[in-house]
Design a protein around this nucleic acid. Structure first.
Lengths: 329, 329
DNA sequence: TGCACAATTGTATACGTATGCACGGTAGAA
DNA sequence: TTCTACCGTGCATACGTATACAATTGTGCA
């Protein structure tokens, strides 16, 4: 391995000077700078990231915790995050939510293996997360929020989004609607459901208990719920799913059972790219996933650069996007 | 920050002993070991990853370069890789192929920021990749292969897979078939196309030039190709796409143009989970993506642990999975 | 009792880089 | 010319851990 000392020797300068060429912050004569750069080039010198991290207390690496890589929403968020951070010269470590991955992420902060972490899967239950926030670990929550945590959080207006779906359905005479949520401890699914159910109730068409489900966030479990609903013989006029990935499962179940699309409207949430594909043409509530990702990355970088900032919350508005899964030719 | 020295002081031992408790390799009396562990717990000690990396020359981190996170194939590979490696206590850095990400990955090896890299996007053009292989950098190619590189490579039998599609179509009387490839410099698309085109030719039904396309690997570009094909007025009996993600684009274009599914069969490659969804029901060539991912991870870890191993090649067989996009009720 | 030897633990140093401090030299001002 | 100021560079050290080697203690056996 070639070190800055080797470069120094070849260039006939001290190791300190080589280091200064690297950081390019201090003044150096153009001549020595050039000489050092030639030496670096000649030897193929690359600084050792671990050694740098030890001195500068910075790794130029951040972590991201995602819930489910097979859900295209997370793929899009990850896509945007990596583009944004790659461009900024920052490495991205990913944790895939199975089991205790959020603990691994927090541990990585303690180990100084990463400078900070973006959580897309936070829940109120995690005492470790709470403790990390209280220690002022650099972390940002995007997508799912936790009211009780004093840290940066980027969300969309889920309650309003859910309400918008209810209003839309009722405005089109769909009074008998079902809701399939993901899990109660995820703020996204909870808030979307709340906004929806409350508005349905307020406008005189409360959603009955047997039209409220937990679909577990996946395509297949949601299709399973839909099948149960269908076999119950009491088909709702519309189904609102907590996210698009689940809505695809609902659509698939309808197709598999040869239920015509006009007999049961399906609505999702997120507006992932696939929702616009002709095979789905899914009506959904668009949240600006990529913008949210960029915003979260920005907040984290700021916080890493300037510790001690007051916690910030960013809430992005959502729009209902109407497509073929609800209004048919 | 609490260091091993602090722990040593509290436990009344030397820093070296603390380090030994950490590595748990050397013999220690149960008493001191316990005392040190209590001290660690009390102080909340966590070793500094950078310092460890500097001494041990190992980061317990590996990199993965993926081509396109919106293609579910890469999501599945990444999903499997992260599960496998998380479980092994290894961090995963991801590079998203836009622009020069493979250069960043190679740089990260030089910086000792990662112990090795898994490439899913290798091409023969990259001189830097060639140079890295010659320097015996720990890296593994999965999915796309490069014949001329002497490094570990995990692939599937793409040529045979393409041939199987041709045989299947001809056996069902579909003699006028089109091929939509991704890009010539990707071994996957190239080999699948070769196997397909060659077999079609050998069996007396060569695919004419105007039925051969480059679809750019994405859903939208493939749909665009399909639209051009449709507007040409000469509809093939079947279209073979270089991967499932592209095939979904082809299916969508057919739907958007209200072409009945039986008028133009569509076949993909990969068998991503979505291919089995009722909305697509895509006939495709299954390659064992997750197994390939695990295999690649295993090869890389072996190579990191035991440098100097001879390059290995693993080739997984593929199966044609027939679904509704080709045989209709 | 005395000695060899094994089992533990401490001492000292190295990994590769960044940076505070001191030093030599040059230029401008008096 | 002499003094001041400043610029460019070298010297020395610190970051936090792992490990070769030395030192210590305790054990078994003659």
């Amino acid at each position: 391995m070639v070190t800055s000392r080797d470069v120094a020797e070849l260039a006939g300068v001290s190791q300190a000077t080589v280091s200064r060429v690297l950081s390019s912050s201090s003044k150096l004569s153009a001549a020595t700078k050039a000489r050092v750069q030639v030496a670096m080039e000649t030897l193929g010198y690359v600084p050792h990231a671990g050694a740098q991290a030890m001195k500068t207390r910075r790794t130029n690496t951040i972590g991201v915790v995602v819930a489910d890589l097979t859900n295209p929403f997370y793929s899009e968020v990850l896509d945007e995050l990596t583009r944004e951070l790659d461009a900024a010269g920052i490495r991205v470590v990913i944790w895939n939510a199975g089991g205790g991955s959020h603990l691994d992420a927090l541990k990585a902060i303690s180990e100084r293996a990463v400078d900070g972490v973006i959580f897309t899967t936070a829940t109120a239950e995690s005492l470790e997360l709470k403790a990390a926030v209280e220690k002022h670990s650099p972390l940002v929550l995007i997508n799912r929020a936790v009211e009780s945590l004093d840290c940066d959080q980027v969300t969309s207006t889920n309650i309003e989004g859910g309400a918008a779906v209810a209003n839309y359905l009722l405005d089109h005479g769909k009074t008998r609607a079902a809701f399939i949520g993901g899990a109660e401890n995820a703020s996204t699914s909870r808030d979307r459901g709340r906004g929806f159910l409350q508005t349905m109730g307020e406008r005189g068409h409360p959603v009955p208990e047997h039209f409220r489900f937990i679909g577990g966030f996946s395509h297949d479990t949601t299709a399973g719920v839909m099948n149960r609903l269908l076999s119950g013989g009491d088909l709702p006029q519309a189904v609102f799913c907590a996210n698009d990935h689940m809505a695809f499962g609902a659509l698939d179940a309808l197709r598999a059972n040869r239920i015509p699309a006009r007999d049961c409207w399906v609505i999702g949430y997120d507006d992932v790219e696939m929702a616009a594909w002709d095979s789905f043409s899914l009506t959904t509530v668009r949240q600006p996933s990529r913008e949210m990702a960029r915003s979260g990355a920005g907040l984290l970088l700021e916080r890493i650069h300037t510790p001690g900032l007051a916690p910030r919350r960013v809430d992005f508005p959502c729009d209902l996007i109407v497509r073929g899964s609800t209004e048919h030719a």
